[in-house]
Design a protein around this nucleic acid. Structure first.
Lengths: 257, 257
DNA sequence: TTTCGTATGTGTATGGGGTACACAATCAAT
DNA sequence: ATTGATTGTGTACCCCATACACATACGAAA
């Protein structure tokens, strides 16, 4: 009897993968992080040192698609138990026309299952930058963060997927405290403001944002921040887990546009 | 050379369908309508006179998934050019465990591509009830509207899909004038109110809703309504196409909760 | 030590919109 | 003509979103 989830390497993957993975369906994850006052996204570099792509993967034949997305996320970042949201499925039959010439040529010469048409299910995740250990997969040269506004041209339709992920993230801003996932446990109000400003792509009023956040009653203020910045030291805050969970159950609203 | 999109009937569909359709991926449409002051959903009855399901279908190998959804919608309702929204993809590997015993038995005895695991992409549409001519497909006995709150147990995970569709519809209420698609061209304010109340599952204040709708400046009031009801005749309204398009470009907000 | 530049910490005033609410008018049925 | 149920309409209140200014703290440079 066949093993359900073997570790397939190299040619075996191309030749036998379809026996273990669902053909024609894939996962792509848009993994957001925040560092140095910039919103980042985790990208993989192909071994040709030329192409970049979103971290993605395939679905085992007995695996839930959400579990596949979690597995891909964990294998690239080391993290699980993360806020992961399915936001759109991409089904253009000519998605692969975005491929580079070499790959297209290979596609026409071979018959591996991975070169056939794929519908891909897009997920986005928001993770704490400092906890991530970027890990390339077997087919990648490297794995690293990119500033969201400096992302290069990606393979296939991955730039479109990224764009849609940002739109979806924006729509979800008001239902979910993204700062809780994107920032370290202790953070300052200016940092929290920068998170929202980057995601929304606009400037917000310091005083009003702080008023709104404190009114949610899920933050706890700590002592002063140490000598880091070159200016007045801002307070540190952290999410109060109990108040946070209580508020989430009642469905809190951030009311940011 | 193979024809790209032949009309496959009966056994041919089961035996050769995978040559023309993408295996493992399907479409399911949740089609909403409004009639007799009730929100309705269009369902299909299997030939066993026993099971009901959502109208769905498969994706041609060279077809965009959104086009497949439009095709399925048109073949069940006769309508195209309709507001259709992809809302979620369902990928539980044991989705089919919701199948009735007969089908499960058949599944284990045969090897048709349609009995393998499917990931299904869910769309919802809002259509004008009176324009729809419900049309069963080859495998169905009948096709008719059901009150949203009287829907029976459906096959597979279709009750879950329906539930998620309603949730998604609610979230989209504030970005889209659903009344425009669900109601006939001329409608009364109480009817419009009933649309929102049914979708949101709660009562709304007559005066405030009217105030909000008129403030959007996309409605035009006509003369009185004729002797239909047993009470004071309400005014008729219709959407002003020019004002409507102009407002939509600016992204109007309904602000209903 | 002093000065300067820059970012942080804080409160108020205003306006718009959401919400609650009551009474007069109309139509059909009796 | 009366009754019952539904529609048409305006006002008052309150909360929240927004705009806005000055004092304070820290590092850097003189």
């Amino acid at each position: 009897m066949l093993k359900k989830r073997p570790n397939l390497a190299g040619n075996e993957f191309f030749e036998k993968g379809h026996l273990y993975f669902l053909p024609h369906v894939s996962i792509d994850n848009v993994i957001f992080g925040f560092h140095d006052n910039e919103l980042k996204v985790l990208l993989l570099e192909w071994k040709d040192h030329h192409n970049w792509c979103l971290p993605g993967g395939f679905i085992y034949r007995d695996e839930h698609i959400e579990d596949a997305a979690i597995r891909v996320l964990k294998s690239r970042t080391g993290l699980d138990n993360i806020y992961l949201k399915q936001f759109n499925t991409f089904g253009d039959p000519v998605r692969h026309l975005g491929m580079d010439t070499v790959t297209q040529k290979k596609r026409s010469q071979t018959s591996s299952w991975v070169l056939d048409r794929f519908v891909t299910i897009g997920f986005w995740a928001i993770v704490e930058f400092s906890k991530v250990i970027p890990e390339p997969d077997e087919f990648s040269e490297s794995c690293r963060w990119w500033d969201i506004d400096k992302v290069p041209t990606l393979v296939l339709d991955h730039n479109l997927i990224l764009e849609k992920a940002v739109q979806s993230l924006r729509l979800n801003l008001n239902d979910y405290p993204v700062g809780k996932n994107l920032l370290p446990p202790k953070f300052t109000m200016p940092e929290l403001q920068r998170v929202y400003e980057t995601i929304l792509g606009k400037n917000l009023d310091r005083r009003n944002l702080q008023k709104k956040m404190l009114a949610l009653n899920i933050l706890e203020r700590l002592q002063e921040r140490k000598s880091g910045g070159a200016h007045k030291a801002p307070f540190l805050y952290r999410f109060d887990q109990r108040k946070y969970e209580k508020a989430m159950k009642q469905g809190l609203k951030f009311g940011l546009h």
